[in-house]
Amino acid sequence: MEFTSILFYVFSLFFVGSSLVMITSRNTAKAALWLILTFFSAASLWLLLEAEFLAITLILIYVGAVMVLFMFVIKMLDTEASTLRAQFTRYLPLGIFVSLVVIVQMALVLNAGPFDLETVGLPDKHGPSYSNITAIAQQLYTIYVYPFELAAILLLIAIIAAITLVHRTQVNSKKQNITEQISVQAEDRMRFASFKKNSTKESK
């Protein structure tokens, strides 16, 4: 057995095992930590497939940003109340049944031979000067430049949507009320006060 094969089986074991532990854990914070291990093993598998840029991206974006966001939300919200009431066993047989059927079907189809080593052989080895990031960048900035910019716009929309959804308007902040300013009348701004002459002289 080759060394890369051993690595594949080790990483697959971590991938499948940690995802199994993740979906069965009752504590949402622990499930998030197991999901991080799942992402790390997925990134290792992607490294075996010579997708270095995406493996690093997965760790940076998912573990560094998305899972931290998850942990923030889990720690801010009261998740324990809902997990206690979760009907764990009620839908367990259905879930196991559906998953087993899909896995058996996929294994039967994939083991029939259209994707094994005889049909789809290993690709040619790249030279030492080959860079995955350079190859991706050459395609991304030429052929896929419009989808790339659309992705940027999508991220901008996501930022605006997330901020407008959770932003709470502060009561004591100083801001303009435009409608009130436009509809103001002269009487609202100026007040005529009548003073007696004697009282003003006495005050001086």
Partner: peptide
């Protein structure tokens, strides 16, 4: 050597684990 079908079977297993996870934890949105 690792064939393409091995990777496909592995990813279908993880896909189904995620599917079962949605069935099991259906009351918890996170």
């Amino acid at each position: 050597m690792i064939a393409l079908s091995d990777y496909l079977i592995l990813s279908s297993i993880v896909f189904c684990i995620g599917l079962a996870g949605i069935f099991i934890n259906r009351t918890n949105i996170i």
